[in-house]
């Protein structure tokens, strides 16, 4: 943990805040959440969290803790990127904690979508950044938190297979602090657009 960002991330993991357990969700809440997931969230994210539109993130197989944290951030209007404000603040406004936890469990239980192969050279460059970071500008390896296979760890989201367009947009939002996450702002601020494209292409190609 030589890198200050990694140290911060380690502390976040150690805190273990907001862990979602399947046992926490009763049957009625689960059924309600499935109804919401299919009938409401599914409009953009697909009935099982496999969105067809690259503007909307894949949620199938996503870590439950991450989904729950994001839904609460939308509901509490603390996540401030443009699409969060335009889409998710409204859609999450009436979600109760129990439903959020059940939704998180629902998506975590879905089979993740398949990745899409990208341009070989770009994917290779993205892999390099994902696994090693960009030391010259202080960008740490993404794999340190998101896992070597990009399946996520603890509170850190799964990125494997995620739509490149969505990943690009999030990195840009971290960079300009519209999505105000100090750790990711620190990570992303040193990335050039071409490097973000490469990482996004690499992640989209993973399963």
């Amino acid at each position: 943990m030589r890198h200050p960002i990694l140290l911060a991330l380690g502390l976040l993991c150690a805190l273990g805040i907001g862990v979602v357990h399947a046992d926490d969700v009763d049957q009625a809440t689960h059924e309600h959440a499935v109804h919401v997931a299919v009938g409401t969230c599914g409009t953009c994210h697909g009935p099982t969290g496999v969105s067809q539109q690259p503007k909307y993130p894949l949620l199938a197989g996503q870590n439950a803790n991450y989904v729950a944290a994001q839904l609460k951030a939308f509901r509490n209007q603390t996540r401030g990127d443009a699409d969060a404000i335009g889409y998710m603040w409204g859609m999450s406004a009436t979600l109760e904690d129990g439903t959020i936890d059940a939704l998180a469990q629902y998506y975590a239980a879905q089979k993740a979508g398949r990745g899409r192969a990208g341009e070989t050279a770009l994917v290779a460059k993205g892999r390099q950044i994902y696994e090693k970071g960009v030391e010259s500008v202080g960008v740490p390896a993404c794999a340190a938190c998101h896992g070597p296979d990009a399946h996520g760890m603890g509170d850190f989201p799964r990125l494997a297979g995620q739509h490149a367009q969505y990943v690009m947009k999030q990195l840009a939002s971290f960079q300009n602090n519209m999505r105000n996450v100090a750790v990711m702002h620190g990570v992303a601020q040193g990335l050039k657009v071409e490097e973000m494209r490469a990482v996004a292409a690499y992640l989209e190609a993973q399963e």
Partner: peptide
């Protein structure tokens, strides 16, 4: 927009 809580651009 009022019903969904989403801006027109959605």
């Amino acid at each position: 927009a009022r019903q969904t809580g989403m801006a027109c651009e959605a």
